[in-house]
């Protein structure tokens, strides 16, 4: 029975992993093939890598576009973690009638599709002289409502006794938050950071609307424009761009994963 369970467990994990990884293999292989070969589903590596690379780097300032994406996502992550976790902590631990109302309204806001807000947002940004500025993408993204919800859910399990005890010792609420809550909730922050980064990195509609010029582009915007700007789209070049755009999120995962492993070993010690 145990053996069967174990077999099932490993088969499930192996099959799932294969399905998860396969498109990545195919995308890397694709980066070395021509458009036609990719369309035909060629599985093996080809000899077009250099041609595709030259095509992409020749046509676009890839380092600059990467830097744009990194800058936007980095700033967004730091500020959204700060703003949303502070707010969530306030909402959860210092509830008032008004704050509960505000929280409910914020939850409702989460349900509004971005497409509905595009035109008003455009007007605001134009008024602030922010069209074609990265700040136009960062500002609306910092206040990530989903993260407020996420943090509040997580803070629910944070024991009030610790807060009360610290208060008796004379610590201010900010101090409690940054010195005690933050260090204790690291895995929550890790997950939130991943979410915020991915969200910003993948953000498509806002950059599409606000970023007009190529020197302001993000990688996501570049990939979409690669796929639609020419009638004869170059899949090989697209594949390379996708591979390049995936590297930073991949690195982030590798880094964050260490945190996970650490936490997990801690929780599994006999």
């Amino acid at each position: 029975m145990k053996k069967l369970m174990s077999l099932l467990k490993y088969s499930f994990l192996i099959i799932s992993s294969f399905i998860s990884i396969f498109p990545f293999y195919w995308m890397i292989a694709g980066a070395t093939n021509t458009s036609n070969q990719i369309a035909e589903g060629k599985l093996t590596f080809g000899d077009q890598l250099w041609v595709n690379l030259q095509g992409l780097f020749g046509a676009y300032n890839i380092p600059l576009i990467m830097w744009n994406s990194l800058k936007i996502s980095g700033i967004t992550v730091i500020f959204s973690l700060l703003v949303t976790s502070l707010a969530a902590f306030g909402f959860e631990k210092f509830k008032t009638k008004t704050s509960e109302w505000i929280y409910t309204i914020i939850l409702l806001f989460m349900m509004i599709p971005l497409a509905a807000l595009v035109i008003p947002l455009f007007k605001i940004m134009a008024g602030l002289q922010l069209v074609n500025q990265h700040l136009a993408i960062i500002l609306p993204a910092v206040n990530n409502l989903f993260l407020i919800f996420f943090f509040r859910q997580s803070f629910k399990s944070f024991p009030n006794e610790i807060i009360d005890a610290s208060k008796i010792e004379g610590a201010s609420n900010y101090a409690i938050f940054f010195r005690i809550v933050f260090p204790m909730m690291k895995s929550t922050y890790a997950a939130a950071a991943i979410y915020a980064f991915m969200n910003s990195w993948n953000s498509y509609l806002l950059p599409l609307i606000f970023l007009q010029t190529e020197n302001k582009y993000t990688m996501t915007l570049l990939i979409s424009s690669l796929s639609s700007a020419s009638y004869v789209a170059n899949y090989g070049m697209q594949m390379i761009a996708i591979v390049i755009a995936t590297v930073p999120t991949l690195i982030l995962f590798l880094v964050m994963q260490k945190g996970f492993v650490k936490g997990m070993t801690g929780s599994l010690k006999m």
């Binding site: 994990l13 799932s16 992993s17 998860s20 990884i21 498109p23 990545f24 195919w26 995308m27 991915m198 990195w201 993948n202 498509y204 990688m219 996501t220 990939i223 979409s224 796929s227 697209q238 996708i242 755009a245 995936t246 999120t249 991949l250 982030l252 995962f253 994963q257």
Partner: peptide, 16 residues
Amino acid sequence: ALFLPCVTSLVSYAVL
């Protein structure tokens, strides 16, 4: 391996 899919952007994986 199981994490990997979510490092792709929505546009990228849809194209893939």
